[in-house]
Design a protein around this nucleic acid. Structure first.
Length: 469
RNA sequence: GUGGUAGUAGCUCAACUGGCAGAGCAUCGGGUUGUGGUCCCGAAGGUUGUGGGUUCGAGCCCCAUCUACCACCCCA
């Protein structure tokens, strides 16, 4: 091992920028959310798929669009020792379309429905809810043009959020049209912005040449003003696309999903066509109470109002992606939820189950070397008997072991002392009453089983460690 | 990639206008022989994010850098 300076060492035990460790309750919360989302998706007929974290870099370059930020600056792309150019996947849709074509899924009953969950990677500057390695839960419907597929994807996405207690979600949506009508609209848009070119910010002047659609979701005040009267994609939709969009809206109406039309919603990936959408969570009950709660009405309208909502998910239709990858016409629609953005909301607004893990009910205590050496074997006997057990074998004193046992809130302690270890007996201590009796070890299993049958869940060892905020 | 704010023990934070770096929580041990929740005592834990500079002297001032948060950009 090379010797490292103190500074180097310090770097060594810090995760790299935009990446983090997930453990404890956050891990359990995340598992729980994914479990629920999976449950909903499965019910609606989505099957599982996992694609590689590494793909040919080209797969993303050609599909997402050469001018998009994701491809231009955010992709973790590198050459392997073998000389291939590969990339850590920045998104999930292109790989799934690749898989669809690679495995000839067009021979399956159409459409093919997939859910997926996993890590994705984008090299951008981290901020709230944005990581370089992040986790998405996504849905894809491949092989149909039917607007009900769009409705289904949005519906299931909203249901997954409702399932975990995030009731108030609002869908922003738009339609970009197909190749034909999108081209017409785009032309008009360029003409419009040419006329108002001076009003645009520096970036948007560049976008006007490269990717004029993106001017619409520029956040600069001046560009937003310029955009208000810009030609809207929906008014350029061809008859076919118009009908398609109308039917999508009808499906959402019928499903009781709240949505607003957002003419500025364009999205950054080139492969989108027709329906595009983003899903927002609205905090319930924003109404300020009028009591004397130390009125913050002084000057402070800034921070309370400007709280911009973070999109929890987004997606859309990508009818041309199949042609780009495999010269095959595969109309499809999909979406992804940003799990990292959902988890913090769950703590405040979610319907989290009381305990995310099954707490142990019995604590195994050992005393002395003979007992300690028998412990591993005896614990396995208890595991076979399906008795949820905890232990702290590395501790030697009885006191510290019981201390831990009581903190865990177990019902019983099974105490194996020097004497018991020699006798093949064990002491069962009732942690509430303090009463205890010595039993032959073989009998203690049945004894514990019958005792535990009556007991419910022990008080869980506090699942959430942060109460205020 | 750009801008703003901030970094002191594992966590939450102290330390006057520059003058010996501290507390609570958590951890570990102990409060006589093999019995927990409360309580008491003790220990360990830091080159003040890092590297320079100014100064007799820097946690504090200056510069750079890294990281986090916020915003832009973009997106989930």
């Amino acid at each position: 091992m090379a010797r490292l300076s103190r500074t180097k060492k310090k770097e060594l035990y810090h995760s790299i920028k935009g990446a983090r460790d997930i453990f404890g309750d956050e891990y359990r919360l995340r598992e729980w959310f994914i479990e629920r989302a999976k449950h909903v998706a499965t019910f609606y007929g989505f099957g599982p798929i996992a694609t590689p974290h590494l793909e040919r870099a080209e797969l993303f370059g050609t599909t997402l669009g050469g001018t998009t930020d994701v491809v231009q600056k955010q992709m973790y792309a590198f050459r392997t020792r073998g000389g291939e150019s590969v990339a850590l996947r920045p998104e999930g849709t292109a790989p799934i379309m690749r898989a669809y074509i690679e495995h000839g899924m067009h021979t399956w009953p159409q459409p093919v429905l997939f859910w997926y969950a996993g890590n994705f990677f984008r090299h951008e500057n981290p901020q709230r809810g944005r990581w370089r390695e992040f986790y998405q839960f996504g849905l894809e419907v491949l092989g149909t043009e039917d607007p009900v597929a769009d409705g289904l994807v949005i519906h299931v996405a909203v249901l997954m959020l409702r399932e975990v207690g995030l009731q108030n979600v609002l869908v922003h949506l738009n339609s970009l049209g197909c190749k034909e009508c999108r081209a017409v609209w785009r032309k008009e848009l360029v003409a419009y912005f040419r006329k108002h070119g001076n009003a645009l910010c520096k970036d948007c002047k560049r976008r006007l040449k490269e990717n004029p659609l993106r001017i619409l979701d520029c956040k600069e005040e001046r560009c937003r003003e310029a955009s208000t009267n810009a030609p809207q994609s929906v008014s350029y939709l061809c008859a076919h696309c118009k009908q398609h969009f109308r039917e999508v809206l009808e499906h959402l109406d019928d499903a009781g999903i709240a949505y607003v039309l957002d003419h500025l919603l364009v999205r950054g990936l080139d492969y989108y066509s027709r329906t595009t959408f983003e899903i927002f969570f609205e905090k319930p009950g924003e109404s300020a109470e009028s009591d004397n709660s130390e009125t913050k009405t002084e000057v402070g309208t800034e921070e309370s109002e400007k709280k911009k909502l973070l999109a929890l998910g987004g997606g859309g239709r990508y009818d041309y992606l199949g042609e780009v990858i495999g010269s095959r016409n595969v109309p499809a629609v999909g979406m992804a939820l940003g799990v990292d953005r959902i988890i913090p909301l769950l703590r405040e607004h979610g319907k989290i189950p009381k305990s995310l893990q099954e707490p142990p009910k019995v604590f195994f205590v050992q005393l002395g070397t003979t007992a300690k050496r028998k412990s591993l074997h005896l614990m396995e006997e208890l595991r076979k008997a399906k008795i949820p057990l905890a232990q702290s074998l590395s501790k030697d004193s009885l006191k510290s072991q019981l201390r831990i046992a009581s903190r865990l809130g177990v019902f019983y302690a099974a105490i194996l002392g020097q004497k018991e270890a020699l006798d093949d007996t064990i002491i069962i201590r009732d942690m509430d009453s303090g009463a205890q009796e010595t039993l032959p070890f073989v009998k203690s299993i049945e004894y514990l089983k019958s005792k535990l049958r009556g007991k419910g869940q022990p008080r869980p060892p506090e699942i959430t460690d942060e109460e205020d905020e």
